[in-house]
């Protein structure tokens, strides 16, 4: 099967790129290893900072793909290679795809919180990840402890698997801070009687309206912020949790009992990305994410002509940035196909 462009990965980045390419009149195939498109975003309830339903974004992007994009789900890439400007992709099912250009949009994985054993995920009942909390929200369920009671106090733990040399990830995952603030608000919305404490090292409210959301969390929702990184956690016989941190602003160790703990898990390079990159001989940075040809001038291209990178394969990125990057990539692909690529 011959196509002009193959986009690998139907998360928000891949979908946006495929949609934009098809709007530019390019013949594009979108390969996704899972059974549905939407990637991580389809597990989200509402998005920061505006709290627009994630579904709206997916629907919009889906519409842009409605005409022209050949979507193949359940088509993980078994092998990929290139020869004389033609890429050949063998998916696990269906016929091989030949394409003149490939957009790699295989994204990221969430950090496995079990690697941060002292936080008790997978050991204590009432420790969940931010992704699990988001799923609870999106399924419209009520947030309860594992024992079925309504939590009276919840601790939100920032930087789990990010900015942590001890798990080998020195980088910041960028989106967890604002996610934590958003989720703190949503918990307070759902359970007005529940206290919410955020434990942070720094709050990185880097983008438009993020700081305002933080402001709102304090002013309107009474979320408390404690500057201290969680160092360990123990479980009481009633399955509540004892957090140990330092309240660095008073300079004293702090112990707090909470009914639930939410871990804001960061980004890690997805094994799928790593595998495909290895087949193509792409290089990655010390953080494991892929490197574009140049961070400023060729941030979507690679050393292989015709192969493009988009979104979180290059490192943590929020939805807005991933979508913008996907559209930029589409333009670059078009230039490449027209033979006008800026070298």
């Amino acid at each position: 099967m011959n196509r002009q462009v193959a986009v690998i990965g139907a998360g928000i980045t891949g979908m946006t790129a495929a949609g934009a390419l098809s709007e530019l009149g390019i013949d594009v195939i979108l390969l996704e290893k899972e059974e549905h498109t939407g990637g991580h975003v389809k597990n989200w309830d509402r998005l920061f900072p505006s709290r627009r339903p994630a579904k709206e974004v997916l629907d919009f992007t889906g519409k842009s793909m409605a005409t022209g994009v050949d979507i193949r789900c359940g088509s993980a890439v078994e092998s990929i290679g290139h020869n004389k400007g033609i890429f050949t992709i063998r998916p696990v099912k269906g016929e091989p795809v030949n394409a003149m250009s490939v957009v790699l949009a295989t994204g990221y994985d969430l950090f496995d919180a079990r690697k941060k054993e002292e936080y008790g995920y997978g050991i204590y009942d009432n420790v969940i990840t931010s992704a699990e909390l988001e799923t609870i929200f999106s399924e419209g369920k009520k947030l309860t402890t594992h024992q079925g009671t309504t939590p009276q106090r919840i601790g939100i733990i920032h930087c789990v698997g990010s900015r942590d040399e001890k798990v080998g990830n020195l980088y910041c995952s960028k989106v967890c801070c604002v996610t934590g603030v958003k989720q703190a608000i949503e918990i307070r919305e759902m359970l007005p009687g529940c206290e919410v404490f955020s434990f942070y090292m720094d709050l990185r409210m880097y983008d438009r309206n993020f700081e305002e959301l933080y402001f709102e969390a304090q002013q309107k929702w009474g979320v408390s912020f404690i500057r201290g990184r969680l160092s360990e956690c123990a479980e009481n016989p009633d399955h509540s949790l004892v957090l140990k941190t330092e309240d660095t602003l008073t300079g004293r160790p702090l112990k707090m009992t909470v009914d639930m703990m939410i871990l804001l898990v960061g980004f890690v390079p997805s094994p799928e990305t790593v595998r495909i990159a290895r087949m193509l001989g792409l290089s990655s940075g010390p953080d494991g994410f892929l490197l574009p040809a140049d961070e400023h001038f060729h941030d979507n291209t690679t050393t292989i002509p015709g192969l493009f990178l988009a979104g979180a394969v290059k490192g943590p990125a929020c939805i807005v940035n991933s979508m913008a990057d996907a559209r930029a990539t589409a333009m670059q692909v078009k230039s490449y196909l027209n033979g006008e690529m800026l070298k």
């Binding site: 969680l230 140990k244 660095t248 702090l254």
Partner: peptide, 23 residues
């Protein structure tokens, strides 16, 4: 050091006294 306080919070000595390594 970025002053996160992990060291102080986990400190065995800190569980008995006001010893604070970070500070």
């Amino acid at each position: 050091c970025i002053g996160c306080g992990s060291c102080t919070a986990t400190c065995s000595t800190g569980h008995f006294t006001d010893f604070n390594i970070r500070r």
